[in-house]
Design a protein around this nucleic acid. Structure first.
Lengths: 210, 210
DNA sequence: TAATTACTGTTATTACAATAACATTGTTCG
DNA sequence: CGAACAATGTTATTGTAATAACAGTAATTA
């Protein structure tokens, strides 16, 4: 059990590497060089090796990394040993895209509930996930031991919903809304702001042009 | 015209500040202190002041920043003087959410076209935007002088579509797909990877628990 | 077997971002 | 007025991430 703490950016890249490696494995590739992995992600081979150094894995010299082993090692680092239960708060296309990705991936991340206001969805299955009424958030979160919430509700209900999630004991929130959230430091918050991302692209496009 | 280059993170925060400031203005607030703005975003007042220092704006001492002025100054920095035309490639909920946000915001960012494969959408208006066939990407991009693309297509067509966009002369891409893209360095690429974000939340939740 | 090649793993350096410390300036109030 | 206050603007320091430089090692080949 590695107790060292990984750089945040390394954690991000490991998640991406793993997906690429899974693709490679599916294509029958058994070994991969650092520069191959680097080319697939527009980064340098040094960075790949450095990330892999952090997690303490070693390749067979000159043959590249064993794809299967590396997948397992990354899993050992970033996956939880226990299951982590996830809820989608506001189940639109976004939530469904994520759900679809994780379904059948036998991952430790289990999307176990959705919440919505739409009566047509409540008490039905949406993309293979049971949808509950927003009114029952606290109850279901506790009952199903949900530790992570994906927040895709309209802007005006984001703050209130967040407060209820925190009250209910949620441990991590992935915020897809366009409003900044306030959570206690014990809750890990990941902001995912599409307006900012777009304005940022626009800014750098403009800069380059001028 | 400031030619200095802003830190990337500052650009991100300016985009967020502006949205908050617009809300404040709508609520009739005319001035705001650095610590107020900071509290609204879970950051420190020093960081707010430092960001504002970068763009060269000065408040009236002791009265906080003039909300309206600050909005304009931020706009002068991050907005383009010319219009920047944007296309949504694959118009699902995601694209529609972004479109809806920018509609009526009299922003310099104009979403002028959508592309999709679905014959039910092609040649119709979707969320106020004309939808075209994927086959016509090159043509329409040039015709409408589109410089920015929001990519929300399925994973397996992401790479091919990107290549066509680059060929057509696109300058910036916001990638919502879960595959890493390869673009020439002249094209600004912003990755927006929801799987990684979720795995990252899960990792830090797990760490904190253990 | 010694030199060369083609990689990996580690350390050192540089660049970037956040935080802390401090100087400055209007305002208030004794 | 001038001390205390409450805010901003700037410089200095620390922390984090990326890059560069280099050392090490198995395989190959003359």
């Amino acid at each position: 059990m590695k107790m060292m703490k990984l750089p945040e950016k390394t954690v991000e890249r490991l998640s991406i590497y793993r997906r690429t490696l899974l693709d490679c494995l599916a294509q029958g590739k058994t070994h991969i060089f650092s520069h191959e992995l680097a080319n697939l992600h527009n980064i340098t081979a040094v960075q790949v090796r450095r990330d892999i150094m952090f997690i303490g894995y070693s390749s067979m010299q000159r043959k590249g990394y064993d794809v299967k082993e590396l997948i397992d090692v990354i899993g050992g680092i970033i996956d939880s040993e226990a299951r982590q239960n996830v809820a989608i708060i506001g189940i639109g296309n976004l939530g469904r895209a994520i759900t679809t990705y994780f379904m059948g991936k036998r991952s430790k991340l289990n999307i176990v509930a959705a919440f919505d206001l739409d009566p047509n969805k409540i008490d039905r299955m949406v993309s293979g996930v049971k949808c509950y009424s927003m009114q029952n958030i606290e109850e279901i979160v506790k009952e199903k031991d949900i530790s992570i919430a994906i927040l895709t509700v309209p802007a005006d209900s984001a703050a209130g919903t967040t407060e209820r999630l925190v009250q209910a004991g949620i441990r991590g929130i992935l915020n897809f809304t366009t409003v900044p959230l306030n959570v206690p430091s014990s809750v890990h918050l990941e902001e995912y702001d599409m307006i900012t991302s777009l304005e940022k692209v626009a800014y750098f496009v403009k800069k380059q042009a001028g």
